[in-house]
Design a binder for these strands. Sequence first.
DNA 1: ATACTGGGCGCG
DNA 2: AAAGCGCGCCCAGTAT
Length: 854
Amino acid sequence: MKEDNLPFFWPKTEIIYQKPKKVEKPKKDNCDLCGLFYGCQSPKMHYNGEGKKKILFVAEANGAQEDLQNNQLVGEAGQLLRMHLRKLKFELDEDGWKDNALACRPENNRTPTAREIALCRPRLMENIKLLKPEKIILLGKVAVQAVLGDRISITSIGKWVGQQIPDQDLQCWIFPTYHPSFLLRDRDNLVLEKLFYSHLRDAINWDHPFAIEYYEVGTRRYYEWPNEDLQYRLNKILETKPTIAFDYETTGIKPHANGHEILCISIADYDTEQSIVFPIFKDENFLELIKKILTDPEINKVAHNAKFEDCWTRFILGYRVQGWHWDTMLAAHVLDNREGICGLKFQTYINYGVIGYDSFIKPYIVSKSKNCNHFNRLKEVPLKDLLLYCAIDSKYTMKLYKRQKELMSVRLNKGYQLLFEGMLEFCDTEAIGIRVDDEYLIKQDKHLKKRLDRLTRKIEASKEVELWDKNRDKKFNINSSKMLQDLFINLLDYDLSKKTLKGNDSTDKEVLASLDTDFTRLILDYKKLFKIRGTYLAGFIRENIDGIMRPNFNLHTTRTFRSSSNAVNFQNIPRRDIEAQRICRRSIIPRLGRFLLEVDYSGLEVHIAACYNKDPVLIEYLEDETTDMHRDEAMNLFLLEEDQVTKEIRFVAKNSFVFAEFYGSYFVECAKNLWRDIDSLKLENGIPLKEHLKSNHISNYSTFEAHVANVEDMLWNEKYIVYRDWKKKIWADYQKTGNIKTLTGFRCGGLMKKNDVFSYPIQGSSFHCLLWSFIQLNQIAKKESWKSYLIGQIHDSIIVDVVPDEFEHIKKTVKRVMCEDVRNHWNWIIVPLSVSAEVTKTDGNWYDKEKIEI
DNA sequence: ATACTGGGCGCG
DNA sequence: AAAGCGCGCCCAGTAT
C-alpha cells in the first residue's frame, strides 16, 4: 500500500503541519547593514516589560521620548495606549512585554523602510521565540510588516486590524490593530478610537484555546484510475448526497482558448472536513461519475468563487453544475466589506493561521501576459504537490463555509443571497460574452498608430520639446506626467492651478485644457488617442477569442456592494467623448441578425436617495412628472425663468451642482466647475449665459461663487431639510455603531469618511435594484427559452442582444420587471422608477444607436 | 524580472 | 473641520 493510499484515519501521530520554516538566525552584520544604531541614543533597544499576562506588544520604532528614556511606548502614543489598557485593567509594563519592529530610532521618526524592517526581523523573531507569548498585539502597519511581512505581502493595515489570528508558524494568537499615534493624528475620530479600544479589549479578553492545524492529515490523493477506493468514495457521495466543497486547478484563468484543461479536482467532505483529490482522468467511466456528482441538484456544492468552477465546468466538461449552494468568497465579502479580504489565502490565514501553503505553486501561476486567456505553468508542477495544494484549498473552503454559516445573521444572509443569485446569473452572462468586430479592431488599431505617430512627430517638433531637449538629458516622454510637470513648471514657468493627491503639481486634462496652447492641445489629443488604443482597443483585441470577449462581472470586490467588471472592464467604455465613443463602441456588435438593446434606470441614485432620506420635497419632485429638480436649480444658479433653461444648462446644473451637492461637495468646488462649464453656453436667444449673469450683477467669478454659496444654503437649509437631517442622522449612527446598514441587507463597516457614509448605501442599493431585475430577467429568459441574451450590465443598465422577433415581448418584460416587480419585491422603494432605452440597428454596432419609447 | 506606488482617466 | 462616491486599467518610476 502506497503511503498516499492509507485510510484517512490512519494514526499519523506526527504533527503534519511542517511547512519548512526559514530559520533566520540574526546575522552579526544585520545591524551594520542597517546602520540606524549609529544615530540614536538607545541603540539596539532590548525588549522591556514583565509579561505577567504573556502578551507581547509590537510597535513601530522608538520615538524621541523612547530613545531618551531607553524604554518602549513611553511617549504620547504610548500614554494613549496605556490609558486604554488601564480601562481593561491591564498594566503595559507589568502585564505585557514591549518590543518594536526596529530596535533603533530612525532619524526624525521617519517610517522605517522595508529593508530596515527585514534586517531587524530576525531579532524580533528571536525575542518571540524566547518569550513564547500567548498573544501578540501588533500596533500599526510596520509592526504587521515586521511579524507577517516575510510570509505575506502587507499593502495596507486596513484589512488586518481587528483580526484574531491563530498563527501556526509562531504558535500564538496575533491581534493587529492601529498604531496609537494614528489616533493622535485624528483625535476627533470617534469611530477610530472605538475600533482601537475594541481591538485591544477583544485581544486582552481573548480566551479561545489555540488549535493546531493538521492540514495534511486525512487528505487522500489518487494518481491512477481505476481505483477502488476513489470509486467507492465518489459513489458514496452520489448515494448520501452530502454537502461538498470542490475546487479545480486549471491551466489558466479563462478556459475559452484552445488547449485549456482542468488539471485536478478536490472534493471536501462536510463532516470530516477532509479532502479527496485526483487528476481529471481521461476515462469515460470516471468522467461519467464526476458528471453525475456535479449535475446532481441534490448534492449541495460549495466553492470559493463558484463562478470560476462553474465557468470551467461549462467549457471544459461541457455541462452545467447543478446544486450550487454557497460561495465562500461572496460570503466573506458580505461579512466584511473591507478591501482585499475575501481571497482564500487571506481567509485561511486569518481564520486558521495557515499561511504560505501555496508557496511552491506560485512560481508556476505567474503568467507573463496580462491576457486572461493565456496559459499558466501548473502542468509543470509535480502532480503530488499540485494535488496537495488543491486538496488544501477545498478543505479550507469547507471549513470556511461552516464558519460563515454560523456568522451570517438573518439580515446579512438576505444581502448574501442576492449576491449569490446574481453571481449564478452572471455565470450565464460571462459564458455568453460580447461579440466584437475583430477585423475592425485591427484596422482601427493600425489607423490610430499612424495618427499617434503623426502627433508624436508634431509634438517633438514643437518649441516646447526643443526647450526640453536643450535643458534635459532624457528623451521627452509624452506619457510621463513627471516630465510634463517638470516642463511646465521649471522650463516654461507656468503656474499650475491644481495639486495631485500627494501634493504635487497636476498635469491632468483639466489643467492642460486651461493652459490652452497649441502644445497642450496636441498633448491632450495624443493622450486621448493613446488611451483609446492602449486601454480599449488593445483590451478588446487581447481578450476576444474568435470574436467573442468575455468580461467578468464581479460581486465580491466593492466597498458598496456594487458590481465591478474586469478583463476587460465593460463598465467604462467611452461614451461622453463622441470620437472616443465612436472608435471604441463601433467594435461592439450584436450576433448575426440581431441588435443591441440597452435599458437604463433614469436617475436611479436620486430615487434611491429619496427612499433613504424620505425627504418630502425630493419625493414630490420624483412623483410629479411636471416638476424638474435640476431645471429648478438651474433657474436658481443662473437667474433664469423656467422657459429659459436649455437642455445644456440643465445638464450643467444637474452634474456640477445637484449631484455634486448630494454626494457631499460644497459651493467652492461647485462654483469652480459651474463657471468652467457655462463658459460657452448660450441662452435660446443667443445671449451668452455669462453675459446674462453680468446683467444680473454677477460679473465675475467671485460674485458668482458668493451666489452659489447662497443657492447651496437654500438647497440644504430651505429645500431639502429632511435630506440634510438624514445625513446628520446616518453619520451619528455610524459614529455610534461603527457601521451602516443598507436597505438591501448589507452592512458597511471599517473606517469611513463622512461622505462615504452617505453615498455607500445609496450607491449599493441602486445597483441592487438593477441586480434584482437582472436576476429575474435572466431567469425568465431561461424559462421562456429566449434566443435573446442578456450580455452585460453597467450599474444601472442592462444590455441585451436581441432577436428581432422577441423584441416586443422583451421590451414589455424588461419594463415590467424593472419598474413594477422590483417595487413589489422591496416595499421600501417608495418612489416610482422609470427606465429609458436605446437600440442599435440590426447587424449594427454599439455606436449607432437611437432612443426608443419603452 | 517583479511588485508596488502615483498619476491619470474611462464609466456610473 | 472638511468639503462628491464607487470601480479597473494604463503607463512611468522606483525598490527589491
